[in-house]
Computed example of a mutant assay.
Amino acid sequence: MKFHVNRDVLAEAVAWTARILPSRPTIPVLAGILLDATGEELTMSAFDYEVSARATIEAGVNEPGRALLPGRVLAEITKSLPDRPVEIVADGSEAVLTCGSTEFGLHTMPVEDFPALPQMPPKIGAVGGGVFASAVAQVAPSASRDDTLPMLTGIRMDIEGPNVTMAATDRYRIAARDFLWRPETGDFSAAAMVSARVMVDVARTLRAGEVSISLGDGVAGFESVGRRTTVRLLDEQFIDYRSRLTGDWAIRASVQTAPLVDAIRRVALVAERNTAVRLSFTQGQVLIQAGGGDIGRGAEVIDAELDGDDIQIAFQPQFLLDGLSGLESERVRIGMDSPTRPALITDDADDPSFRYLVMSLRLA
């Protein structure tokens, strides 16, 4: 195998592929990146039996072939190379990387031991990368980090024709985002649970252009601009989140989003671990308070519109900020029933596309 390639293009593609490499591989070859040079392309692949990554870039291929190289070392080397074209020649047990006057010799790993990557399932539709990334960023913070409950570590995707809903929950809050996409067939419907960690990674790295989504045989696939990721699906079992996000609220408040977020962040500086931020809504304003323990206390008042009775309600600060930070509107609507029941945070549209239900905390 022998090829030459642009240094920046190679470094970016290797870094993108290496991101899924396991820190403690069950077998040594899973720590490798497979390089496959053919025609006028170089394809880099990584796989840990759950998630696969494949990036294809243009390359001048003099001798087609394949080589399996230590992935993390290759990523460190390529990002540190001088701004010159890179040539890689693999023959036998060593691959020689040359860039200007810099040369590295890397021991190759047995290509025949590298597992076959899963095939990309059938394409079911496509969505703009910005819309996809925005939706994932809004719902992913609500997914659980507790791997003992796999159902709660994923993002649920419900697809009905041109409508998609992403949802996640960790039992303390539920986030859901609706958006439109372009299905391959107008009457297509499906439900899938995808690891939130993988979805965040996909959204961060595939947001340019359009994202093609594939689904089938227990695998989901995402592809954009020459890069594709596959991931095994989680169990489809999930809560009935839609019923929890609908209904009438006895008390409704409307507040400018940015000032509310800034105020919560400021007063939360004196909130001790696992203590609440209190919001006291009265006609025309909301008082945000935190602290009162060993550190000190903080308070700030901002304008608010209130429809209903005055109410004081408390939340875990970061949970509240996760919901507010997901909004893309200038004003936030907060629906409440009582200080002991969850509150619903939405944007200010008549039919909000983002909904976030968060549990309140008992006031001391």
Score class of each variant (00 low, 15 high):
T102P: 01
R331H: 11
D240A: 10
Q318F: 01
L97D: 09
R156E: 11
S144Q: 05
G32E: 09
M336W: 01
E94Y: 14
G308F: 03
S142N: 03
S144H: 06
A167G: 05
D248R: 04
D303N: 12
G92R: 10
A276R: 12
D83Y: 09
V198Q: 11
L34I: 07
A53E: 09
P339R: 14
Q256R: 11
F47Q: 00
L206G: 06
D350W: 06
D187F: 02
V51G: 03
M157A: 15
L152Q: 05
E272A: 09
I345E: 03
L74M: 12
G60F: 00
G32I: 07
T229E: 08
S23R: 13
L97G: 03
A116I: 10
R244I: 00
G92C: 12
T148I: 00
S329Q: 06
E63D: 13
E50I: 05
P317C: 10
V111G: 03
D322N: 09
V332T: 13
M109R: 04
L180D: 11
E87P: 02
T340P: 05
V139I: 10
N163F: 12
H107Q: 13
V14T: 06
R171D: 12
D170P: 05
S353R: 15
S144I: 07
G60W: 00
G323F: 08
E41W: 06
E63A: 11
S80Q: 12
A37I: 06
G161K: 04
I124W: 04
R244C: 05
R54V: 05
C99I: 06
E12T: 14
G100R: 11
V194R: 11
L279Q: 07
P28F: 12
S338G: 04
T205E: 15
M193C: 05
V131R: 10
L149Y: 14
V164W: 02
P118L: 10
